[in-house]
């Protein structure tokens, strides 16, 4: 009995012991890579995207003094006193004021243009569609230079370079983005809904107010957010047409030559987390409203 057991064991033994340990190890490594390649790639992509933001966040806590380039230790004093550096807060204030004004004007105008283009057939509609894309396609620096020339011509009638000229310029380049965003939403809207509203005793205004506007609202909100971030962020055009008015991007650019104060990092990080919070809250609200 023992012999019958050992015989097969004896024949199997040398086969298993045959020296090829590197082959299964390689195979295992390949299999592991196959399973995890997507995860690794994803992690790398996110790292690439978020390293600058992480850097800004970390360095907003740096006790760096005037030049915030080398890590000198953790502090909360930048966050406690974001207006600590000269002109930071007045620049941010200007940027917010310009951003809100330009966004409001661009959103109202853009929504109206989008409705005209999306709902009506008129002469020059195709041309209008095309012309609206031009500001997006034109190099910003070219636009900036031509705007500056234009505004300098307007000086004799009392328009000085400053907040007004910046707002005019920002409305100009935000408009196309609002139109495109809102128009997409209108295109996806079933025209029969308005007919159904009219059939159910709603006047034109009531149908617009109760049905069309609420359904297009996400598009308008999206367009407005896009416009605001474009305006708040803009440096090139602003730098040309701002005269001596300071905005946040301009402040950062100018101070970069002497060393950016940590307060700029604080404001950058704050804006990022504010945006992140808005997105998260919106998502939670949406999920709550969605079907169970």
């Amino acid at each position: 009995m023992t012999t019958t057991v050992t015989t097969p064991g004896g024949t199997a033994g040398p086969r298993a012991a045959r020296p090829a340990p590197s082959a299964p190890a390689l195979l295992r490594a390949r299999r592991w890579l196959g399973r995890n390649a997507l995860r690794i790639y994803g992690a790398l992509a996110f790292a690439y995207l978020f390293t600058p933001i992480a850097y800004i966040t970390v360095f907003s806590f740096n006790d760096g003094g005037r030049s915030n380039l080398v890590w000198r230790g953790f502090t909360l004093k930048n966050w406690a006193n974001p207006c600590g550096a000269p002109e930071v807060c007045s620049a941010v204030g200007n940027s917010l004021k310009i951003g809100i004004t330009a966004t409001f004007i661009a959103t109202v105008l853009g929504t109206m243009v989008a409705f005209a283009l999306g709902r009506h057939r008129f002469r020059g509609r195709t041309a209008t569609n095309l012309v609206l894309f031009l500001p997006m396609a034109t190099p910003e620096v070219v636009l900036a230079a031509s705007l500056l020339t234009l505004f300098l011509q307007l000086a004799p009638i009392g328009i000085q370079l400053g907040v007004t000229t910046i707002v005019i310029a920002h409305v100009m380049f935000c408009l196309s983005f609002v139109v495109v965003t809102v128009k997409a939403r209108i295109a996806g809207l079933d025209p029969r809904l308005e007919q159904a509203a009219a059939d159910l005793y709603a006047t034109e205004w009531q149908a617009f107010r109760r049905i069309t506007l609420p359904l297009v609202a996400p598009g308008i909100a999206g367009g407005a957010l896009l416009a605001f971030s474009l305006s708040f962020d803009d440096f090139i055009i602003t730098n040309f047409v701002s005269g001596n008015v300071n905005t946040f991007p301009k402040f950062v650019y100018v101070s970069a030559q002497r060393g950016i104060p940590a307060q700029a990092y604080v404001i950058g990080a704050f804006m990022f987390f504010l945006a992140l919070t808005i997105v998260l809250v919106a998502d939670i609200v949406r999920r709550r409203r969605a079907p169970k």
């Binding site: 079933d190 029969r192 809904l193 007919q195 159904a196 509203a197 009219a198 059939d199 159910l200 005793y201 709603a202 006047t203 109760r210 049905i211 609420p214 359904l215």
Partner: peptide, 28 residues
């Protein structure tokens, strides 16, 4: 005008208002 007629329609694709709940659709 359609809103001045004592006539109502059941549309082919129903055309229910997607942002209003059933109650508000019927109450419209």
């Amino acid at each position: 005008k359609p809103y001045k007629r004592p006539v109502n329609t059941v549309f082919q694709n129903y055309a229910l208002f997607p942002h209003l709940d059933i109650y508000e659709n019927v109450a419209f």
